[in-house]
Design a protein around this nucleic acid. Structure first.
Lengths: 268, 268
DNA sequence: GCAAAAGTGTTCCTGTTACACCCATGG
DNA sequence: CCATGGGTGTAACAGGAACACTTTTGC
């Protein structure tokens, strides 16, 4: 049962491998030094980031790829997504949703066909593992250069990238990321997914910043407030923010009335 | 490589099988004899139907299941969906979209794990194969009774069922059908999928009947007309319907401006 | 002309957008 | 009291729902 040793001519006799890959989004300020004087057209210092893993074996050895791995015999698809994401990046998302199954015959470029079931996840800042062993880079070249040797001498094949400037990805993972981005933005417009970027309590301004970062456009604070409150998914905590030099805002929490499994849509 | 012979204790050493199943919807008048005097609350004689296949092997031998089959080595996922649907039911849908990948470890109840990638399809009346060899039944009991022996003496393991009254299905196929129904109705509300139930040209009244059948509620003809025309997806053919005893309606055709791959959404 | 459905006009209502304005707090 | 963002009010606008009404055909 050593399928890996088979050559290409045996592809037709091998069963497809099944793997799970995950696009895990987090919100972060852009890399230090970049954009020191934000213009009016780009008012927010927050962008989408995601972790990638450098492949250590063929095919696509050395290229960046989505975190993931093969399905194991007793694990559900979503469990495989969670496990492989946690093992490689340390992240443990509360929000996880199946994205799509990719199964074109030639997508693996190896001796065995590969069917990948992609998931996407949203991470709050405290669902991201501590910085030990994981680095953050702003552009592919920097990642290529610095990957491997960390400051403390450890090796790491994981790095976070801005979703705007990804390196060349293995397999069709660039398509997967683009689709996940599309789905995140689409769902942000009609559902409350974006709330999952925030922690237990947050102000309406923080929530609005999330929406503006994901959708890439500004919202009127007054109207945003009304629509958010009208959605019925916000509960006042009774607390207010502290440490600001102006009127402190109320802190809200997300009340997930219907805790049914999260859902999907697409349009056009 | 004879995986089928392995026993249950070897599950953990076997790679998962990958299969594709398809929920293929069509619109049909309800079975003859049923509801001879439609009431006001149920004004339309049109309901959703879908083909099922009786399993001839374990697991779930003898139970009804969605048409489908294993992925073959050089076929895309959607090609497998089309091929297995055509082979068993004769139907060739123009509209086909991936639904979801189902992969719980225990969903197959056999010696080998089964990952099923489900598709859903919409069929116009002329995309459904001729009636030869395929029967239509209105309730599970009738199907169970009549399945097998057809009028002309042929055997058939395929039958069409009303989506409202399905028999017990193999695997988790009942979940798959319910999810496909949910997706069809959801997408009907914000996209033009429902147009795919109709042929080359159709009247606005016919289109409205499709919407009413899928969504299960009536629409105001005047408002429906305006919204349909405002969508920009209708093109006048210049022809009108014939054979009616009143003012004939204009015939329209569906103009698919952006012929990009169809998309998905879900809500809440 | 009559019945029936096609097709048009109009009003009401609701939710969104734009923007003026007041409120509460730290310094 | 001033600056700053939190929070409220409101008028204009757009799209949908309800329904009255006119038009066109076969008989």
């Amino acid at each position: 049962m050593d399928y890996a040793a088979a050559n290409v001519s045996e592809r037709r006799f091998l069963p497809p491998r099944v793997a799970v890959s995950t696009v895990a989004f987090a919100l972060r300020p852009p890399a230090e030094g970049a954009n020191p004087h934000p213009s009016e057209s780009e008012p927010h210092n927050i962008t989408l980031w995601l972790p990638l893993v450098r492949r250590t074996r063929d095919p696509f050895r050395g290229q960046w790829a989505l975190p993931g791995g093969p399905l194991t015999w007793n694990e559900s698809l979503s469990d495989t997504s969670r496990r492989t994401l946690a093992d490689t990046t340390g992240a443990s998302p509360r929000y996880l949703e199946q994205l799509y199954a990719f199964g074109e015959p030639e997508r693996s470029a190896s001796d065995q066909r590969l069917v990948t079931i992609a998931y996407w996840a949203l991470l709050t800042n405290d669902e991201i593992a501590g910085d030990t062993g994981v680095q953050t880079v702003s552009e592919p070249a920097a990642a290529q250069r610095s990957s491997g040797q960390l400051g403390n001498g450890q090796l790491s094949n994981v790095a976070w990238f801005s979703a705007d400037s990804l390196p060349d990805l293995a397999f069709d993972h660039a398509d997967i990321v683009n689709y996940a981005l599309w789905r995140l933005r689409n769902k942000t417009e009609y559902s409350t997914v974006a709330y999952r970027f925030l922690g237990e309590s947050f102000t309406l301004a923080q929530l609005r910043v999330v929406y503006e970062a994901v959708l890439g456009k500004q919202s009127d604070p007054a109207n945003f407030r009304r629509q958010a409150l009208a959605s019925g998914h916000l509960r006042e905590t009774g607390r207010v923010e502290t440490g600001v030099g102006y009127r402190p805002a109320k802190l809200y929490s997300f009340s997930d009335v219907d805790h049914a499994a999260s859902d999907t849509r697409r349009s056009s």
